[in-house]
Each structure stands twice: as C-alpha cells, then as structure tokens.
C-alpha cells in the first residue's frame, strides 16, 4: 500500500460505510437491494451527509464576514490610501495591510482552504471505491465496509441502463460504448456546468460587496467561469457514472446553499444585503447588527469631504 492509499484508507472505509448504511436503510424500506436506483440514492445520501457536516464550517465563515462590518471604517481608509494604484506590488501591499487589519480585529473573512481540502480525500476515496468495484468483484474482494456481495451487486447495478461503475472514455477506448453511459455522462456534465454557472453568476451579481467587485477577487471569479466547465468536461468523460452522480449532487447542493445564503445571510455591502435589509424593514423587523447604524454613519462621513456621492448613481444602476 502506497503513501496515498494509506492516507485514503480510513476515508475509503468511511465513505463505503456511509453508502452501505444508506443502502441497508433503503432496502429496509422496501427498495430492491440490487437496483442501481438504490445505490444511486446511497451515493446521494453520502453527499448529503458530507455537505451537512460541513455546514458549521460554512456558517462560521459567514459569521466572520458579518464581523467585518466593525472594521469597515479602517478598511475604507485603507482603500483610499491605495486608490488608483493598480500595480502588483501596491495590490500586494494592500492585501498585506488588510490581513494585518483582520488580525487586529480578531476576525477573518477567509475560511482557509480546509472546507475545500476536506472534501478532496472523500472525493478521491469515493473515486477509488467506485472505480475499484469491477476489479474487486473479479478478485472476489470487498472494498472498505462493503462486503464482496455488495461489491458484486454494485458492479451489476445500472441506472437508466448505464452501469454505475462505467465511464465514457474508458468505454470508448475499450470499444464497447454503452449509449446510456454516453447520455448520462453528457447530461451530468451539462448539469454540473449549469449549476456552477448559476452559482457563480449569483455570487458575482448579488453577493459581492462593491469593494470586492473591483478587486482581484472578481477577476478570479470570472476565470472560474471558464476553468471549471473545462474541469467538469475532462473529469466527466473520465470518471465513472457513480462519481459523476456524487459530483453533480454536490454541485447542486452548493447552488442551493448559495441561494439560501443570498436570501438569508447576504454579504454586508452587497446588493443582496440591501434587498435583505429592505425586506426586514418592510416586515418591521429591526435592521441587522447593533453596530450597523454606527458603521453607516462613519461610512457616510468619509465620502462627503471628497464630494463623492455614489448613492444616487447606485440607485440608477439598479433600476436598469
């Protein structure tokens, strides 16, 4: 067993165990144990468990973004200091000072790469489990928490006529292309690209503060719009149907989560946040955050001496 396998072993076991639990549960409820639908739902169940477990990390990040309001005045000063300086060194200097500011206020809007990294071993191990099914079946082995019988069952399982363990490109190379595999792969690739696109668009048009929209972050977001469809396309033709089901489901979860966040916990200073405050006002609820009023006063103070009146402009833009 290599280094990689050793690290992945516990994840592989956990992933297969969760799937088996869902599979047993669904079979108990009267579903056909050998059916591909049951196994597909087990994979979807696995996604739900992993993503639900990540919610606390996500909420922590959103709360940290709320905490950012307190340092708005300092942030405005910093932005004024670097206004119009677009060279790389100045941008970096600004980033460095921003980071020092977060530290000073004990808040940080960035969640670190952990939420993303933590999904990777699950994804890799699921990939190994699903792509190892055919071999384990031939060797009469089990995988992780899956017994040999379950492995054999999974290997035979089909959804809409496509085997869960089959993949587009390897089939094409093997010369025995299954039409259902091709169709399902293409549909899921398109679903992933579409959900990713909608998520990105939502973030960019509704949930970014005006400062963020002008910064390098926006550029990165735009690049993501083009890079990820490529990743999905390349992955989509290489990965087995089972992995694609996992991937598509997790993408759709992300999209739903983003809708929820934009509606209920928008980023302060973003268009979605203004709508959210309006909705609260209409309902007669107090505006969010006790410090909110104080922050607004300070924010208004700064532009006045410079004669920058951005508010009327903003309203015009919105009406279009």
């Amino acid at each position: 067993m290599g280094f990689f396998d050793t690290i992945l072993f516990p994840f592989k076991w956990l992933v297969s165990w969760i799937m088996v639990q869902f599979h047993d549960g669904l079979t108990f409820l009267g579903m056909d144990a050998a059916s591909g639908v049951t196994w597909t739902l087990s994979i979807i169940g696995l996604v739900l468990v992993i993503r639900a477990a990540l919610i606390p990390v996500f909420v922590k990040q959103i709360k940290a973004q709320r905490g950012m309001q307190a340092l708005q005045p300092d942030m405005k000063k910093l932005q004024a200091k670097y206004k119009g300086k677009t060279d790389q060194l100045s941008r970096q200097a600004m980033g460095q000072e921003q980071m020092a500011l977060y530290k000073e206020h004990g808040t940080n809007p960035f969640s670190a790469c952990l939420p993303m990294l933590i999904q990777m071993p699950f994804f890799f191990s699921l990939f190994q489990v699903l792509s190892g099914v055919a071999k384990a079946n031939a060797d009469s082995d089990g995988i992780g928490a899956m017994t040999h019988d379950q492995v054999a069952q999974f290997d035979q399982a089909t959804i809409f006529g496509a085997p869960l363990s089959a993949a587009f490109l390897p089939q094409l190379q093997g010369g025995d292309l299954n039409v259902a595999v091709v169709w399902l792969s293409i549909i899921m690739i398109l679903a992933m690209i579409a959900s990713q696109f909608i998520t990105q668009k939502q973030i960019m048009s509704k949930n970014m503060s005006e400062e963020a929209m002008q910064g390098p972050f926006m550029k990165q977001q735009k690049m993501m719009l083009y890079v990820l469809p490529l990743v999905f396309g390349i992955g989509g033709v290489n990965f087995p149907i089972g992995v694609l089901i996992y991937w598509t489901t997790t993408n759709i979860w992300t999209m739903g989560q983003q809708f929820f966040v934009i509606r209920r916990m928008p980023t302060p200073g973003s268009p979605a946040y203004k709508e959210y405050q309006k909705r609260r006002e209409a309902k007669g609820l107090p505006l969010l955050g006790a410090s909110k009023k104080k922050v607004e006063e300070v924010v208004e103070e700064i532009p006045e001496p410079k004669g920058q009146r951005s508010q009327p402009q903003r309203k015009n833009r919105k009406k279009k």
């Binding site: 980071m99 020092a100 960035f110 790469c113 993303m116 990165q220």
Partner: peptide
C-alpha cells in the same frame, strides 16, 4: 496560475499558502 484562480482568495494568511 491554473488552480488558485478557481477558488479565489481563501487563505487567512499573508502571503497565501
């Protein structure tokens, strides 16, 4: 060049990882 842009700034340090 290729991977970092796909998820934007997430690192809580300066410099990023």
């Amino acid at each position: 060049r290729v991977v970092s842009p796909t998820y934007g700034q997430v690192c809580r340090f300066f410099p990023s990882c």
